[in-house]
Every structure is written in C-alpha cells, then in structure tokens.
C-alpha cells in the first residue's frame, strides 16, 4: 500500500503534470505549425478584438442566443465547468499537499462547500450521461469513447468524495482518486477533452470571421 501510494502521489504526479502541460504545449505548437503550413488563412483573419468579443459572449452564461434557448443545459454546463476547474484548485486537501510538496498555498474553500460542489459535478455528469442516452440527436452522435471520457471526468470527483467521507474501502479509493485525477490530466491534451485547449482558438477564429470580415455576430 505504501509503495503504491508513494508511487501515485510521487512520480505519477510528475508524469501526469508533464503530460498535461507538455501535451498542451505540444498540441498547441504542432497545431500552430500545421496551420501555418496548411491553413494560413487562419492567421490572416484571426482578430484579437473580434475573437475575444465572441469568446466573451460564449463564456458568459446566457450570453448567447443558444445559451438562452436551453436554460437548463446552460446552467448545468456552466456550473459543471466552473466547478470542474474550481474544486481541484481550491480544495483544502489539495492545497495542503502542494504546501507539503512545493511550499505553495492559497485561498481554499470550506469542506462543506467542496462537498456541495462535488455533488454538483457528479450530478452534472449524470445529467450529461442521461442526455446521451435519452436525447436521440445526442445519442446518435455518441460513441463508446464519449462514455469513457465522461467516466474519466466523473471518476476523480466520485472517488474524491468517497475518500473524503471515509466510506468503506476509502484507502483504495483514495489511491484510485489520485490515479483518476492523473489520468484526466493526461487525457486532456489527447482526447476530446482538448476542447479545453482549443476552445479559444476555434471560437476566436469563428468570431474573427464573423466580426472582422462578415460584420455579423456569432452568438
């Protein structure tokens, strides 16, 4: 048990961070190089002003017609995405680990808040799962990999919640928690989770084309 713990909380953390940050960097650079070679117009028409204008509308809840038309989805997806990033960064238990390892720390949320937000994330994942199964158009687009990805995202939250509450087997769960978090980090650059990296560019490009060239809104 100690060996496993030491391994997942030691070298594997480094590996996952390296894959995560290195992967993001690699994806961005390789995509930029490819675009320079094959899609030079992306550079020609990308506009900071109009790109940001579009991004801004899309990252504000109900900032676009689409968000307004699907209020439940909008609320769920926004809280989900905010929590997804917010919880791991501001969780007390994580901060103390960073403090121990690298002597860095910052503001944290209360454990009660973390509990509630984690439930929100898990509930959101269930919402997404149900959507995939129930809505015909989403179901049509869904492949096994979509469930796997959803699982990858949900796993750290479910296992974290389990571990925190010290439910039976929480020791094993704790290790799975660390591992699943690492898997998620490593998966981000190389799966459809890479929408996290590419969102500013795809949205920004569309916003640039709509704004700077076509003088129209894209939200």
């Amino acid at each position: 048990m100690h060996d496993i713990y030491n391994f997942v909380s030691g070298p594997l953390v480094w590996v996952s961070f390296i894959i995560f940050f290195g992967g993001i960097l690699y994806r961005l650079i390789s995509m930029a190089v490819l675009a320079k070679k094959k899609d030079v117009i992306v550079y020609e028409y990308m506009s900071l002003q109009y790109g940001l204008r579009s991004i801004l509308h899309w990252i504000i809840p109900f900032g676009t017609v689409k968000w307004q038309k699907n209020p439940i989805f909008t609320i769920v997806t926004f809280t989900f995405h905010i929590c997804l990033i917010f919880i791991p960064i501001f969780l007390f238990a994580h901060i103390i680990l960073w403090k121990e390892s690298w002597d860095i720390s910052w503001w944290y949320i209360s454990d009660i808040a973390a509990d509630v937000l984690t439930i929100v994330v898990i509930a959101s994942c269930i919402f997404f799962l149900v959507r995939r199964i129930v809505l015909p158009d989403v179901k049509y687009l869904t492949s096994i990999s979509d469930y796997v990805i959803l699982g990858i995202v949900a796993a750290p939250f479910i296992t974290g919640f389990w571990t925190y509450h010290q439910w039976p087997g929480f020791r094993i769960m704790g290790i799975i928690h660390i591992l699943s978090g690492e898997i998620m980090l490593a998966a981000i650059p190389f799966t459809r989770l890479s929408h996290m990296i590419f969102f500013p560019f795809t949205r920004g490009y569309m916003g640039s084309e709509f704004g700077a060239v076509r003088h129209a809104k894209d939200w």
Binding site: H2, D3, Y5, N6, A93, I96, K99, E100, D103, T163, Y164, Q166, F170, R171, G174
Partner: peptide, 23 residues
C-alpha cells in the same frame, strides 16, 4: 499544518509504515 504532516506522514512514507492518507 505542513510541519505536522511532514513530521508524521513523511516518516511513514519513508519507513513504509503507518497511515499516509488524510482519512
């Protein structure tokens, strides 16, 4: 918190004995 943890947990990790996880 850190020095408590370092005192207990790190020793446990090194000696591969004793508790290491929060709970």
């Amino acid at each position: 918190v850190k020095i408590y943890h370092v005192r207990c947990k790190r020793c446990h990790q090194e000696k591969k004995a004793g508790p290491v996880m929060c709970g």
